[in-house]
Amino acid sequence: MTEQDYYEEIIIAGFGGQGIIMLGKLLANAAMIDGLEVTYFPSYGAEVRGGTANCMVVISNEPIASPLVTSFDSVIVLNKASCERFSPRLKPGGLLLYNSSKIGSVIPPVDAEVLAIPSDDIAVELGSPRSTNMVAIGAYLQKRGVIPLETAVKCLEKVLAKRHHKTIPINEKALYKGAEFAKGLLAGQTVK
């Protein structure tokens, strides 16, 4: 982490059951362990009934004013409905990371970086379809380079309920796989 000002407003969204909330908590915990200021805010109440889930994470090296965010530096979306809902609220120069296994090509309304990660497919290949969220977060961490992958891995134990602890090794694998995929994409971009 550099000493200069860092302020990132992130939304993570998808279907209920895609591990969205867990993903947000993982990112928030990792940021905390990394010594950053962080807030996490879940969608709740009536909003969670529609089958979609989202959460907002703000990461900064300064105290954070509000956990409630209206436009985003990073949009991480795992299904189409969420992509349609939140990608219009990207800030110019922001990052759109989407699950390309479920979402066709996306043209963000503003000048933004786009990372298409076939996270469902990668997770299926690993034999753990439910780890699609881990693939996405791995790709995100790789792209941002703010929080080390190992820090996120360390937090899996914290954010997963004890009964799911047996899935930690496969989730760790999925996270690194996502990072690797993003690395490849980014390298390709540089060449281009």
Binding site: V38, F41, P42, I64
Partner: peptide, 9 residues
Amino acid sequence: GLLGQMMEP
């Protein structure tokens, strides 16, 4: 509701 629902370290 914001203070109740939000997480911070």
